[in-house]
Design a protein around this nucleic acid. Sequence first.
DNA 1: GTTAGCACTCATTCAAAGAGAGTGCTAACA
DNA 2: TGTTAGCACTCTCTTTGAATGAGTGCTAAC
Lengths: 355, 355
Amino acid sequence: MADMDARKRRILQAIIDDYIDTAEPVGSRTIVKKCDLGLSPATIRNEMADLEDMGYLKQPHTSAGRVPSLSGYRLYVDELMTQYSLTMEEINALRNTMAVKIDYLEKVIAKTTQVLSRLTNYTAVISAPTLTAGSLKQLRLIGVDAHWMLVVVITNQGMVKDKKIQFAAALTPEKISRLESVLNTQFTNVDFSQITLDSLYTVAEQSGIEMELMLPIIEFMRACVKAEAESDVYLDGAANMLNFPEYTDIERVKKFLNAVSNRMDVMRTIQEVQSENDGISIRIGNENPGSGFEDCSIITSRYKIGNSMQGVIGIIGPVRMDYKKAVSVLKSTTGLLSKKMLEITGESPGKPERK
Amino acid sequence: MADMDARKRRILQAIIDDYIDTAEPVGSRTIVKKCDLGLSPATIRNEMADLEDMGYLKQPHTSAGRVPSLSGYRLYVDELMTQYSLTMEEINALRNTMAVKIDYLEKVIAKTTQVLSRLTNYTAVISAPTLTAGSLKQLRLIGVDAHWMLVVVITNQGMVKDKKIQFAAALTPEKISRLESVLNTQFTNVDFSQITLDSLYTVAEQSGIEMELMLPIIEFMRACVKAEAESDVYLDGAANMLNFPEYTDIERVKKFLNAVSNRMDVMRTIQEVQSENDGISIRIGNENPGSGFEDCSIITSRYKIGNSMQGVIGIIGPVRMDYKKAVSVLKSTTGLLSKKMLEITGESPGKPERK
DNA sequence: GTTAGCACTCATTCAAAGAGAGTGCTAACA
DNA sequence: TGTTAGCACTCTCTTTGAATGAGTGCTAAC
């Protein structure tokens, strides 16, 4: 069987590039016209037959052109793909989004998701940042009424989360303030992951505070660290998929929409995709675990805030996706988002904001 | 021109019922078979011609059956429609959802939205409750660092909202605690809507606290009252629309998805629909203001928590929608949601919850 | 006022035919 | 040995035309 020389690679690349562009099976004549290697259609045909034997191309039916196979795409993104440079408009669109003064983390993410989907014409997903390693900076307990208490956790990153918790036993202001001071002295600047059930019992014993009071609060503190909450996935541009010829099939659309509407699943999928690799990662077609995205490709990347918070940012598109552009846009966006986030969480020397 | 006697009404009703069921133009024979009025097809045909003249029916083309016009639907929902009784399964599905112990308001809403869309097979929308008339119960200011402060507002309803605000001037613990006590004494138990810019200036003068410090906090307090925040609309079951034959047209699907993906617009639309009426309200087709739902019908209803919070709950479906079922499900859901919410916000004698 | 009968209309379905794109193979050429 | 021209063949897609069938409107009779 023929092996993979430079010419074959060049031809394969041209075929995939063209197919990504047109969504139509690519014939030998097209290739001759596009990249002039000084070869005739017949030669190209021979090469294409070889490439098909090797598993990189497929023929929808005899007498149609060739279409990339999944391993074809894989080779393409791994070795063949060229770089795409953002146009000035694209760069500006990104910059402008990021330049807007917003003080809510969520708004930045929502906006970024929007721009990302608009720039690429694919579906964009961003997961809100979660703590990777965090410690308690301050804990505040606020009595709402006799049975309800508001717990406010401020992490070392300045991230704030709160929860209203109900207790069976009646709460008195004294009890609450004592609880607050005990927990603060015990757990301030301790990494969340270090807090064990044992240490809790010790604290309970020494301070005489009931476990029933402490437990829900500690549990909440830990929940702040874990990646959780389906509401923390932002998704935009699902409707974009309908613009692609592969989504004229209503059943496919339905499948995609269902997959996308379950935010928990989306979250899990992009986290999984991301987990192996720290740079950009690309999953093609059925490389995506069976959660409804089998005819999509997913490109993801990790953004970081300082060194203890991170989230995932991703692009979901059809398998026949403009990988080079998507990768490029994703890279820029990731960078800008990280930077913007730093400003907002106030860790960097951010300028004061008002209103 | 003929007028609207009981027989015509009966026939119109039968036609619309059948059309809602089958999505096919209804012929005279079908009507004869369905409701036995002891009339022949020919007679029905005459009546149908009359109904068409009156504008209640339309013919897609000569030699097809009849289809309801928008005014036909209007008459139907206003006067003709019979009642639908929920089946035991449906009632149980609802009850079970509501019976689950959940302590987060958002989770209840999210879950309810899901069940509502599943029961009806339409798209369900619920807006998170907003205060209609609220006052401050307690204000807490927590310094995060020199320039950031966490503002926590607890309303008379026990609703808690918070925001992190950045200030140009450096904050000292003394400054913060003074600000907290001044604002608390001044604004506790005062209806939010009563707070004017004038009263603020007076307070600033008397207490010597800078407006720059107070203003963002007060602004946030007011924002708690206003219906705002796009993230506060919960939507589920958009993919359901694809099951209806009117949505085999890809363009229509695209339009619908776009409309649905802009949560702000959805919010506005259901609020608008609701604003006139306190019971159930139905908007048919182009009765919906031009925000992409022109070929949908929207049924909405208001749910209340106590007497100072409320939200909207709605069903979006094709114009050819099973109105009687939708209305019935919506009514039950509204009632149950109101009740559950009361338990959660802790206003009623709710039992203690743990974990 | 109701009904039977009949001619007419129009969407839908199906098969057949034709066009076009592209291949695989063979034989000739450098 | 690699490349190319030529040709028969395959398969999809589009067009066309005819048959089908549901349903109407109108007229005349009951």
